[in-house]
Design a protein around this nucleic acid. Structure first.
Lengths: 179, 179, 179, 179
DNA sequence: CATGAATGAGCCTTCATTCAT
DNA sequence: TATGAATGAAGGCTCATTCAT
């Protein structure tokens, strides 16, 4: 499955060939079919496995802190971190989601990923620290979208996500969502 | 080329078959090869054409307004509008960019798209209305990322981008970037 | 037709494309079909025309000389000359003859080419100067084969057919066929 | 590979279709691609294999005899024999060599074929039995060319290479090359 | 006489998948 | 569990040929 993710990352979903996956794992193509019913099964398995891992990662490692702002700053850094460290996985998910392999039910899986993040925001609203007259989805879109683009820009070499840049970025986000 | 965009939108880049493109345009597959050297040429042509069109659209229609805030609000609505109206085109671009068809030089094309938006932000900084101690890329990432996610959420049915929602969203963005 | 010969010479019979022939003559492919019924017709026409030209060339220019040896030496030089000057044409004929385009009747055409050469040999036999106990075909094979190879070797850069080399070559041939 | 040679012999290089090759070997076309990368690879492989085989055949079976004339007569018969027995292979080589598939390096292969024959001639020159004032290439051209034409004439039904005819032919060749 | 546009047949090739072992 | 060999279905592409003008 790692190999599959790797290939998708370098050559895109189009570039995935059962043959090559097998070769890279040093087994025969036919052997692959013992573990996965077919190509779709392989791809979907990778998708489920990957999202599940990320969900778990979020479930277990979402930073906690008594002070709301600190907590959210932690979440911000955590999301960025995760997107950087698991860029291949995210790239896979992004492509899978746009492919004809995606079925409706698969989407639910994805919604689980940032459930916890929602909770953090909800708490912030309850504590009257975050804007409470805007839907949580909007706050979330801002956080999700901004972090995604930041990482994308770094990957393209347009910015460097050092401490200072991250601080500046978070300051903007914080200004956006705080009451 | 429209047909190609359509197919990519519904079936993904993987789903593009010269055969089907031809059938939908009601010409023979071989006839396609008079206009495009091969599949890659078709895809790349669509990419260039589409980005060029969007660049032109941005060049011509970026809203202007004497008051900075109004100007940026205009830009915000304009971007959202464009992303909604041309969702297929953007979907195509997103997928093409991740495919093995993409070559380095193709990327330059994309940078042109939002050149004008940069200018709007730069003006805002010069007028000392926008935060001027953060790199323009960060401001841009926030705007780009947030709008993308908003549209994505609407497409998924999670939110509705009505007047009120847009106003709320812009308020957040404005709070983020204003001095 | 010259263009066709040219293409066959550089790219082989396989390389002949109606499209390219047309392009090189600066007419449209469809226009080609006014002059030739189809590809086979074009190729066969070239074949007939070329052989006919060579036959005519042999008919008109076969050297004559009262002394038998001189006459045959003339023929030898003449054949070599022709094979060098019309190497493209001969290359075409060679390839056409091995192709599925060749029909039995086409072969007769070829036999005409060296009819006159046969006559020269026959005269030599009658004059009791050439070996008269060997079939004319054998004498002919020796002349034809040797000259072909000589030209081939020159084309490959293995020998140079200068005066001296030609003299040596003819001496061998003469020793072979004289009584 | 034999099938390929066969097809080239009957239908020319143009007539080689991967499809038909496969059908005749009773495997699927795709299976062919396990053994040969593509059509060109198949053709080139056949070429290499065939020339190599012939080279080997010449290396191993070039007749030897203490008396120079006998030795060369042996070579003469041997060449004719080979050209008759392996007419298909020679036909393939001839056509391949004129095709766009041929690359420069491929030619070297061919020069090996008659290396040994050269040696026989060289020995004859050293023994002062063959003409030693003519380049070996000329002697070779005479032998090669004449034998080729003889076999060609037999194939066309113009002569029959029986004992008597061969003797006559060799007498001519011998007269040509002996001192 | 000339053409640009169009086409269908067919070939090469790939690749997911299976079969015999 | 593992594999090498095999395959069928399908897609990309070429090219001789024709059609409307």
């Amino acid at each position: 499955m790692n190999v599959t993710i790797d290939i998708v990352h370098t050559k895109g979903l189009i570039g995935v060939k059962m043959c090559e996956v097998a070769k890279r794992v040093k087994i025969s193509p036919s052997n692959l079919y013992i573990y996965f019913k077919n190509k779709e099964d392989l791809l979907r398995s990778v998708f489920f496995d990957t999202t599940k891992k990320i969900v778990k990662h979020f479930d277990e490692s979402i930073p906690n802190h008594p002070i709301c702002k600190k907590r959210i700053e932690g979440v911000f850094h955590f999301i960025i971190q995760t997107k950087v460290n698991r860029s291949k996985e995210f790239s896979f998910i992004r492509q899978f989601v746009q492919s004809p392999y995606l079925e409706k039910k698969d989407m639910q899986q994805m919604d689980l990923i940032l459930k916890n993040v929602f909770d953090v925001f909800r708490d912030g609203q309850k504590e009257m620290i975050l804007k409470d007259d805007v839907e949580i989805e909007l706050i979330f879109a801002l956080m999700e979208g901004t972090t995604s683009k930041l990482v994308e820009f770094q990957n393209k070499g347009k910015i460097t996500l050092d401490k200072i840049t991250l601080d500046k970025s978070f300051r903007m986000i914080w200004d956006a969502i705080r009451q």
